[in-house]
């Protein structure tokens, strides 16, 4: 195995393209090193993108935020403005692993690793985030929802990597939330995850909503019916119940070592409605 730490986007793209699929990008490394150690992957070259300035830092961007690909969960949690604007996105990322993992793990890595249970992804998709993909043909903006394509698979072509993620500007009466179900309180992979992003008008009526489920399908599930159950309501009990029912109906989980179909189906609704209630409460305050 070779190790490279390019200093520019172009250099990284060239290294990636030259490796022709035998390269792996190192951002936080918390998935990559586990996979290396377990012998699940044996890349010819590992490309550390942390020395590339465009992958670093969080910047305010036209009311929204641009988050570099190598920004760790801990850095996101420490960014007060980001937390205020997108608490759900940040709490999703912050649920990934321990304090130690947070010091390294990145939201973009979580996205590219494409686990169906990724905690960093549902709220990010609910937020309508996009990402900048650099590749041999230059850079393109892609909705983050289009990156994961199935368990462990993403839509990045040979030579491509994600440079940053952009969260849009948002109105005042808007917020988001992410909840997951795990057997312990920490250190587990989600059995079910639910991210909800919503906008209220001045009267407290929900005008826009997005409900995304994780860990109950091969990739995240966008539950339009659950969102529709919230829009036009004050996110009251009836709306939350309808949201829960729609989420449970949309879930397509499997039985595996972490949970059962029955359990995941039921809890999809529970978490979607609870996340919606939290997001609404945040939007109101």
């Amino acid at each position: 195995m070779r190790y490279e730490a390019p200093g520019s986007v172009d250099e990284a793209v060239k290294l990636l393209a030259d490796a022709n699929g035998a390269a792996r990008v190192l951002a936080g490394g918390t998935d990559l090193l586990v996979q290396l150690r377990a012998g699940m992957i044996s890349p010819e070259v590992v490309i550390n993108i942390k020395d590339i300035s465009e992958t670093k830092g969080i910047t305010a961007d036209g009311g929204g935020f641009c988050i570099g690909a190598t920004v760790s969960g801990a850095e996101m949690g420490e960014h007060a403005a980001l937390v205020a604007a997108w608490p759900g996105v940040v709490e999703g990322v912050e649920l990934i692993g321990s304090t130690q993992i947070q010091g390294r793990a990145t939201m973009v890595g979580n996205l590219c690793n494409a686990s169906p249970a990724a905690d960093g992804v549902p709220a990010l998709i609910a937020a309508g985030a996009t990402c900048t993909v650099a590749g041999p043909n230059g850079q393109r903006e892609v909705p983050v929802a289009d990156i994961p394509t199935g368990p462990g698979k993403n839509s990045l072509a040979n030579g491509e990597f994600i440079v940053n993620v952009k969260l849009p500007a948002r109105p005042g009466n808007a917020s988001d939330a992410y909840l997951r179900m795990i057997p312990r309180t920490e250190m587990d992979i989600a059995i079910v995850g639910a991210g909800v992003n919503l906008v209220l008008d001045d009267s407290g009526t929900c005008t826009e909503a997005s409900v995304i489920l994780g860990a109950v399908g091969p990739k995240t599930i966008t539950v339009d019916a659950a969102a529709a159950a919230l829009v036009g309501t004050k996110v009251d009990e009836a709306a939350l119940a309808a949201c829960a029912a729609a989420a449970s109906a949309a879930a397509t989980p499997i039985d595996d070592k972490r949970g059962t179909v029955v359990y995941r189906t039921k809890v999809s609704g529970v978490l979607a409605s609870r996340a919606a209630a939290i997001a609404a409460e945040r939007a109101r305050s």
Partner: peptide, 15 residues
């Protein structure tokens, strides 16, 4: 590592 708490098993020596 540079003031951040990390698991050293998840950091490459070269890093």
């Amino acid at each position: 590592l540079d003031g951040r708490l990390v698991c050293s098993c998840l950091v490459l020596g070269v890093e």
